[in-house]
């Protein structure tokens, strides 16, 4: 009542202009934020295509008069791009896929069943989200350098006289193992997203399947998973992106087969190894080119998944 009274008292002109003003205001905020986001990317691309002299030339703003691929060539060589790409794909991306799969299984178990110790597991899940990965990276690295499961492998030393404790650092195993057990890179939050989704999914269909004699693993594969593409896409995109950008774990686990993120992080030093010192403009430009080469593959993947991802975010239903 009050509101309608208020509305009537407002004169006609403001009544009509208010929504227009509001959308204008909205547009300004969006444009400002988009400017902040897009500008650095364009800057990066534009300067990676410039020669050193064009970069300093104040008359060249965005589009250089002569395009050059010199920076890309230099960065490609310095980053050891081919091998770095292979390790990113072989270590990180496979690990992301494994994580997407195993986190779903764990979250389904937590969301659908009651079992003793479930509360404790939920507390552990919160801890897994909250405890920074840096806390456990050192013990993990030491453990991976002399692989052992709770002292079991050490026993082989007593039995056979020779210890079977392989060093799995710098191999795919140290990326795959945690992901296989759904405690990989930021698994906590991924399990949480899945958990929220399964929690909101109607139970009836699965109960009907149970009555019809389908065991839960089969119900999970044939009924729950096909209807949860929304959650799967959300988690997949996040996991792939986080693995692609992962620096902290990769820098400790690898010593030669560096993934892209690690070799990009040391690109200025790597460039100085081939004679382009930091301070030289070509070094800056080379780094820009490296950034472009690093970003473009993941951007292409994102552009393909973008529409589905955006829709998934709407429907995944995280309520905290």
């Amino acid at each position: 009542m009050i509101a309608s009274f208020r509305k009537k008292s407002v004169n006609r002109v403001t009544k009509r202009t208010r929504p227009v003003l509001y959308s204008l205001f909205r547009l300004i905020i969006l444009l400002a934020i988009s400017y902040v986001i897009v500008y650095p990317l364009l800057y990066m691309i534009s300067s990676s295509l410039k020669t050193a002299s064009a970069f300093q030339d104040p008359s060249v703003l965005w589009i250089p008069k002569i395009f050059t691929d010199e920076n890309f060539k230099v960065a490609f060589e310095a980053m050891d791009f081919k091998n770095a790409m292979l390790s990113t794909l072989g270590f990180e991306m496979v690990s992301a896929l494994l994580e997407t799969a195993t986190c779903a299984v764990t979250a389904y178990g937590l969301a659908r069943f009651n079992f003793p110790g479930k509360k404790l597991l939920m507390v552990m899940l919160v801890l897994l989200i909250m405890v920074p990965p840096q806390m456990i990276i050192i013990p993990m690295t030491i453990n991976f350098s002399q692989l052992d499961f709770l002292g079991i492998l050490k026993l082989t030393g007593g039995l056979f006289g020779k210890e079977l404790r392989p060093n799995i650092l710098d191999t795919a195993a140290c990326f795959y193992l945690p992901s296989l057990f759904s405690v990989g890179l930021r698994s906590g939050i991924l399990i949480f997203i899945y958990h929220q989704f399964f929690h909101g999914l109607p139970k009836e269909l699965e109960e009907a399947a149970w009555i019809d004699g389908s065991a839960p693993p089969r119900t999970f594969l044939q009924i729950a998973l096909p209807s949860s593409s929304v959650a799967i896409i959300t988690v997949l995109v996040l996991s792939v992106v986080w693995h692609w950008n992962d620096y902290y774990l990769a820098v400790m686990y690898t010593s030669e087969k560096f993934p892209l993120a690690v070799s990009l992080a040391s690109l200025p030093q790597r460039l100085s190894l081939i004679g382009i010192w930091p301070g030289d403009i070509r070094n800056t430009l080379g780094v820009m080119a490296g950034c472009v080469m690093f970003v473009v593959p993941i951007l292409i993947v994102y552009l393909f998944l973008q529409r589905k991802f955006i829709k998934s975010i709407d429907r995944v239903g995280i309520t905290g």
């Binding site: 764990t106 178990g109 659908r112 069943f113 079992f115 597991l121 057990f181 399990i191 839960p216």
Partner: peptide
Amino acid sequence: KSRYGLLFVAPFIVGLLLFF
């Protein structure tokens, strides 16, 4: 059912112990 639940989270429990 609770046994099936444990089956689903068993890898997670092992992983938590080993890697967390």
